[in-house]
Design a protein around this nucleic acid. Structure first.
Length: 136
DNA sequence: GCCAACGTTGGC
DNA sequence: GCCAACGTTGGC
């Protein structure tokens, strides 16, 4: 089991949209590092959904329901995965909270805010759950 | 809306 | 293969 953070702009596709849709194709990643992370995802891996620009907070939890396959939107060598919602965080965890945490301030979401798919250790994952006052 | 940080592109 | 120029992203 691995853990990840997926970034999305909520005015394009929000966690609420994911809850409504029950499942979505996570496509459009056009960054090599992010693509490689997508390809390392395994079935059942847990992901946090982070809202960039608007909110700037981790709002919910999802899971990988289909591992990497050819991005349907392009013929070029990019990947997509399928994501299903698990549950919303009881309390969203803001970027500010992440930055002020001695451990979490070093996660790639904070250090490299442009990376749209980034890995998370179990420890970091648990800490964020705790900050979000949420149990899986 | 601005700008810093980062990634990509293309000329040499 | 280097690096300047450019485009994009996202925090502020």
């Amino acid at each position: 089991m691995q853990y990840w953070i997926l970034k999305s702009e909520p005015d394009v596709y929000s966690f609420q949209d994911l809850q409504r849709d029950k499942k979505t194709v996570w496509e459009g990643v056009r960054n090599y590092q992010a693509r490689n992370n997508l390809r390392e995802m395994e079935l059942g891996d847990t992901v946090f959904i982070y809202h960039s620009n608007i909110g700037k907070e981790i709002v919910g939890i999802g899971k990988v329901v289909k591992t990497a396959y050819q991005d349907p939107k392009t013929k070029e060598d990019w990947s997509a995965v399928d994501i299903a919602p698990v549950k919303a965080l009881k309390t969203p965890v803001t970027l500010e909270q992440l930055k002020s945490d001695a451990v979490l301030k070093n996660i790639s979401l904070v250090k490299n805010s442009r990376l749209s798919v980034s890995p998370l250790s179990k420890k970091d994952f648990d800490k964020i759950l705790q900050l979000g006052q949420t149990n899986l």
